[in-house]
């Protein structure tokens, strides 16, 4: 088991280096550079000398290969550098934004699981009934609806409905406070974006649950259990669902890893000061250091989630042995 984990982590190294190389190259292919943007912000008087000094200071004049090796080496030594834009340490910049994004991603996952697994199961058990059709339509609509549009609409609806109901429009808070400081304020802020993101997420999961469940229900051992006269409840809960959950777990894991990046658009709608918005700003400002750090963060989350999913998978399915 530990050997397996170590092996998986070693296998992740090429992925990480590859991702690092990719983002490094992409950032340097973008025309222009941060010095001009930062110094000339707002049409300021910028003399070429100070641009040159800035480039020198940020190491933008070094040969590409040196820059790349510096970048890799700094990550090996766990020094993630300072943002070229604000001069703050990258860890500091990210730490300020991570809690919102992480909380929304987690809450969306919980919402997705709570909705998707029961509904998906019921839908499979009542295959081709009206209930099944409704659930499927809701699920497909969830995949088809752009989450940012859902966000815009839900924000307006919340304001309008509270206005009509109480005469005073209400909207979620717009500045993030950590959960332990003010749970109610925190939740009322995060809930709406979590639902908008969670809807799509639950739709995907619901479809997977349903199809996995259908497949399992056609298996021989279920038929055997039924013919044995076992209670339907036991069949579903103990035999079918447990097996059907395998692909669902994988899907939830993969979707979660993508969620962090997928928040880019949703954070824009709700003015959330999260990772996604930071990423857009970093690319826009051509803050290479920050962009690289963010991409590496997303990639690491992806790799780790995948590993966790695989371990979970093995835990759920004793047939799988690590080799």
């Amino acid at each position: 088991m530990y050997r397996y984990i170590v092996k998986r982590l070693l296998l992740a190294v090429p992925t990480l280096v590859g991702a690092a190389a990719l983002v490094f190259v992409l950032m340097r292919l973008i025309p222009g550079d941060i010095c001009v943007i930062r110094l000339g912000s707002g049409g300021a008087h910028v003399d070429p000398a100070s641009v040159e000094a800035c480039r020198l200071q940020l190491g933008l004049n070094n040969p590409m290969i040196v820059q790349f090796l510096d970048f890799l080496w700094s990550y090996i030594t766990l020094d993630f550098g300072t943002s070229m834009w604000s001069g703050h340490p990258v860890t500091h910049e990210i730490a300020a934004r991570l809690p919102v994004s992480l909380q929304i991603a987690l809450m969306a996952t919980v919402i997705a699981i709570l909705i998707a697994i029961p509904l998906g199961t019921i839908s499979a058990l009542r295959e081709n009934t009206w209930l099944d059709h409704i659930v499927r339509m809701v699920a497909i609509a969830g995949i088809a609806t752009p989450s940012f549009w859902l966000g815009i609409m839900s924000l307006v609806l919340v304001l309008d409905i509270t206005y009509l109901a109480t005469g005073k429009p209400w909207m979620p808070p717009i500045d993030y406070v950590p959960f332990w400081q003010d749970p109610i304020r925190n939740l009322s802020m995060v809930l709406l974006p979590a639902i908008t993101v969670g809807y799509r997420y639950s739709a995907v999961t619901m479809r997977m649950t349903r199809s996995a469940m259908l497949e399992v229900l056609r298996e021989d051992y279920i038929r055997t259990a039924r013919s044995k006269g076992l209670l339907e409840q036991i069949i579903v809960n103990r035999h079918a669902l447990k097996n059907a959950l395998l692909p669902v777990v994988t899907l939830i894991g993969i979707e979660f890893a993508f969620l962090i990046g997928g928040l880019v658009v949703t954070e824009q709608v709700f003015n959330l000061n999260g990772i996604g918005r930071l990423f857009v700003q970093a690319v826009q400002n051509q803050d290479n250091v920050l962009t690289q750090a963010l991409v590496m963060l997303v990639v690491v989350i992806f790799v780790v989630t995948n590993l966790v999913v695989d371990l979970l998978y093995a835990w759920l399915d004793p047939r799988i042995r690590f080799s």
Binding site: L159, P169, F270, N271
Partner: peptide
Amino acid sequence: AAKQSVRVDAIRGDR
């Protein structure tokens, strides 16, 4: 808040 809509909503919702 760089977005106009957020700012208007915020004033509307008394945030």
